[in-house]
Nucleic acid binder design. Structure first.
Lengths: 219, 219
DNA sequence: TTGTTGATTTCGCAA
DNA sequence: TTGCGAAGTCAACAA
């Protein structure tokens, strides 16, 4: 990794055209050739960048980075404050926990959260417009489509509605009811779901994870 | 801006829980207190970070960054390779060109892409649930609502559907047809649009921009 | 302040 | 490889 503090102006031409007037900035060149142009603020997103795969050509006072699809990042450098390189080696990578797939996994294993006697038909039940998170049968054997979100918003209710419209055209499944399950459900989403006869269920992630731990402890 | 090259492990607890095993990484502390943890690869996104507003507490071998909503980023440092600071000053910021608004502008000026004899009623035609990108009349004077996206996905079709539902309640406009125009339209969005009687049009941005240039060259 | 929409989105999974 | 949905999305803009 190479770190350069320099006064530079930057021009990007690709999906869009963008220009950065001259100023002091941090330029990062990563091992894969990608380049980031950071200012001393904003967010984690650079002012400008080039994603790998790309190629950096260096001339005095001018860097040209060319991407795979022909995008170019042209950096004009008028003053270099510092320029250093360091070998960081491979990174072992990030370990995440707590995302939607885990919620889906937990709920699939704990269908009793939705109702006693419920059975799982399958996870990621395929439809022409995308997979339904969980397809179930309730205690009376009736079809239920379950949409799971970390945060329940209107989009999720729309998504479930589309699935239900489609699934209800299948005489082998119909009638199919809907359950919208999320860690947190926004009031607007709750209203819309209610209006469409969709049941909302708030999931307690910590408790569900705890239940999983408990069951593991039994062995 | 402060740049530190250090061997560190990182733990984030917030919306999710994440852990980074010990490795050599670049730590960036920006003027607003935000912290980025970068490895020598990936994209412009850091492995881990804390967005402003936040507060950095530094003890020997341990940084604790606390966000506004109580999220914490704990960095345990076992070896410091380098540690330097530099004042970059304010950044003049980025100037962009070529996004969705430009597509809308181009299509409004080249309605023949949609059909001969079409007329523009207005851009950003207002409705109670948001503006329709283009409201037109076709060669026979029939109303057409046009939704423009850079990439056409299901959400865009839903959006246009909501507009059409609403517009068709207005006897002065009804019946209103829909056109979904985008540089690239995803198959699922195409299926949904087709199912709802919405016409899909793929826009060639470079060609449309070229046409604009051609017309400019006439003067 | 809150909600909505776009993004040079990036990232990860599955077909 | 490609398509598609999620993201600690971020960020700009309107109500």
């Amino acid at each position: 990794m190479r770190l350069v503090i320099a006064r530079c102006s930057v021009d990007y031409v690709g999906r869009l055209t963008a220009h950065l007037p001259s100023a002091l900035r941090l330029l990062i060149v990563k091992a894969d050739g990608s380049v980031l142009v950071h200012s001393d603020g904003g967010s984690y997103k650079p002012l400008n960048w080039m994603s790998p795969p790309c190629k950096l050509t260096e001339e005095p006072g001018r860097w040209t980075v060319t991407g795979k699809a022909g995008e170019t990042l042209a950096i004009t450098i008028t003053e270099v404050i510092s320029d250093s390189s360091v070998d960081l080696g491979e990174d072992p990578g990030l370990v995440k926990d707590g995302v939607e797939s885990h919620l889906q996994e937990l709920l699939a294993a704990q269908l009793e959260v939705l109702g006693d006697g419920w059975r799982l038909v399958r996870r990621e039940y395929p439809t022409p417009i995308g997979p339904v998170d969980l397809m179930c049968r309730d205690e009376a054997g009736r079809s239920v489509a379950v949409e799971i979100k970390r945060r329940g918003e209107i989009d999720g209710v729309e998504q479930l509605t589309r699935y239900l419209d489609l699934l209800n055209r299948d005489p082998l499944l119909a009638p199919v009811r809907g359950v919208f399950a999320a860690q947190e459900i926004r009031p607007q989403a709750r209203v819309l779901a209610s209006d469409r006869g969709i049941r909302c269920v708030t999931l307690d992630y910590d408790r569900m994870r705890g239940t999983e731990d408990d069951s593991l402890r039994l062995f």
